[in-house]
Write a protein that binds this DNA or RNA. Sequence first.
DNA 1: TACATCCCGTACACCGATGCTTGAGTTACG
DNA 2: CGTAACTCAAGCATCGGTGTACGGGATGTA
Lengths: 215, 215
Amino acid sequence: MPTKKAQATRGTRRAPATANRAANQRADAQRNRAKILAATVTAIRKNPDASVADIAAEAGVGRMTLYGHFQTRAELIEEALVDSLERGEDVLKEVSLDGEAAAAFQRLVSSSWVLVDQSGALLAAAQKELPAARIRELHEKAEARMRTLLLRGQREGAFRNDLPVTWLLTTTHVVMNGAAEEVRAGRLDPDDAPWFIDAILLPAFTRAARETEDA
Amino acid sequence: MPTKKAQATRGTRRAPATANRAANQRADAQRNRAKILAATVTAIRKNPDASVADIAAEAGVGRMTLYGHFQTRAELIEEALVDSLERGEDVLKEVSLDGEAAAAFQRLVSSSWVLVDQSGALLAAAQKELPAARIRELHEKAEARMRTLLLRGQREGAFRNDLPVTWLLTTTHVVMNGAAEEVRAGRLDPDDAPWFIDAILLPAFTRAARETEDA
DNA sequence: TACATCCCGTACACCGATGCTTGAGTTACG
DNA sequence: CGTAACTCAAGCATCGGTGTACGGGATGTA
């Protein structure tokens, strides 16, 4: 009477299923795992609610092979997101945040843009599969970096301080994501995107000249 | 063997099922129809992928009653969107677009914001249920109004013309939608939103002082 | 009051996606 | 080269959502 869903079912295969990255797996298995992770990103990019079958197909792998590596759809999405964010970190931590705040911001944005363009759809998918807290947790590092920079800019007078940093942060996200969507829809040339993005953000964020009297 | 789905099944009730707004329906039926339309908006706002059952519940109406008014989920979403956009039009067409472009833009945005805040989630839901062409078609009027205004602003030198209008348009959408999401998530006070929105958009759109030499 | 209209619960067929099982075929690696 | 690890097809149970069928009961309208 297996009505109770599943619990320790697959326990015999590999112990915690997570955090066994480069353990005792066969070389070919690791390769497949990587293929699947990559395929997850591209499949979701094409179709925001791709099924597990779709992803497996995209990876050129059987659906069951996929389930051998990731017990559940949610786990797959999560690990794909973790993986993407780790690679993202590798890129972003190389960006110099020193010097003029506006220039640093521009550097950070144009580096981030590439990542958003690639993994933005995955992020969106993850948002309806994982608890919001987990998402925020995973983005913590990247978000903190941006927030710190914006704060410094505000203190130094480079960025306006009549708006909360959180709003500057969401604006940044939102504009980058919007550009990514436009690119996906074929309405925007990917090469134009970086320029378009900070053509909007820089003038929006730098100190406003005059107009604070309102109500 | 009714394997062929459904075709003329419900034909006996009302002829084309669409465009029978204030026909020979009973007063009480019309009232329910309205309740359902309204409930669709609020239900989707709470939960972006609410089921037909959820919506019926939100309307305080049986699921079958709902199917009596709308044959299919897609039809429900579409009619709800049409309805929302019609009301939106009623509001927006009252906004004066004369005078200084920037001021007119500000007026138009703050009127639009209310609508986006209310029906933005519905729009998002519609995007994965209706063909993109239909969506664009429905938004045509509202979009044209905004585009025309932006174009005039560019011609008059009030708005920058180093970016295509389409990009200004998407930026506007994206920022308003972002604000709506933040409000829904409880991270932004609805009263602050209008100010936050054009605090970003105005400086971003008005003529850039200097920095056109780049590449 | 009479009757056509409408409400709405129950029950059912269908569909697609998830997740599990089995069993046999491959393939890496010691 | 032999074995353990891995792949993968086919098939099944389950779940949730959509749309249909029916039929008694309420209610607006004439």
